[in-house]
Amino acid sequence: MLGKLTEGSEKRSEGLRMTPVNQASRMLMDLAEPRPVGDTVKAAITRAARAVSAVLRDARQEPMTYGRCEDLWRREARRVDAAEMDAIRAAHERRHRSLREELRQASALADRLERLAAEALPAGDLAASDEISATARQAKRTARALRELAEQRSAGVTR
């Protein structure tokens, strides 16, 4: 069976549709990342509520309460107000813009490390030069992998 039947509907496609509550929930969960080891769901919901509240405060609106954020997180809310959804989207975009900048800086740092390693290679110590070169290449690969992972996550949440 391709999709579940929803109450009051004979169409299978309606069970597969991304509702505003589902979108809000996914964005809130993404806002709570990265979750440290041992993190509780309550702490993650609190982080997401604070991120959205920061946007709402900038717009001179009431901050998002923990209870409202929890209802959206768990997809128990019946609806999402337009201003609330705009704030969630803005907080989500703000976070991803920050992540993109951090990844850009990490990539630039890896490039600088590679250049410095090339300049500082000891002439006679082949083992040390190989180790420095390998470390610089690994830093560059790590920065590239992080950038690709961030792009995949961003594309997955906005679908």
Results as ranks from 00 to 15, higher is better:
Ala48Arg: 06
Arg50Gly: 15
Ala90Arg: 02
Arg78Tyr: 11
Asp86Asn: 07
Met64Val: 03
Val37Thr: 12
Glu62Phe: 14
Leu99His: 02
Ala91Gly: 05
Arg57Glu: 14
Leu72Arg: 09
Met85Arg: 11
Arg57Pro: 11
Ala83Glu: 07
Trp73Val: 05
Thr46Val: 10
Ala77Gln: 06
Gln105Val: 11
Gln61Pro: 13
Ile45Ser: 02
Arg74Ile: 01
Glu102Gly: 06
Arg89Asp: 06
Arg89Pro: 15
Pro63Leu: 02
Met64Ser: 04
Val55Leu: 10
Arg78Glu: 04
Leu99Lys: 03
Glu62Val: 13
Ala90Phe: 10
Leu103His: 12
Trp73Thr: 00
Arg104Ser: 14
Asp86Pro: 12
Gly38Asn: 08
Met85Pro: 07
Arg75Trp: 09
Arg100Cys: 14
Arg97Leu: 06
Thr40Met: 11
Arg68Asn: 02
Glu62Gln: 07
Ala48Phe: 02
Arg75Phe: 07
Arg74Cys: 00
Arg47Met: 03
Gly67Phe: 14
Gly38Ala: 02
His96Lys: 09
Arg50Trp: 14
Asp86Glu: 15
Ala82Thr: 08
Ala106Leu: 08
Ala83Gly: 06
Arg75Asp: 03
Glu101Leu: 15
Leu56Gly: 06
Thr65Ser: 05
Thr40Gly: 12
Glu62Pro: 10
Glu70Arg: 02
Arg97Cys: 04
Glu102Lys: 12
Arg97Asp: 06
Arg78Leu: 15
Arg57Met: 15
Ala90Met: 09
Ile45Trp: 01
Pro36Ser: 04
Pro36Gln: 08
Leu56Trp: 04
Arg68Gly: 14
Leu56Gln: 00
Pro36Ile: 09
Ala44Thr: 06
Ala44Val: 05
Arg104Cys: 00
Ala44His: 04
Ser98Arg: 08
Glu102Ala: 10
Ala48Trp: 00
His96Tyr: 04
Arg94Val: 01
Arg75Met: 03
Arg89Gln: 03
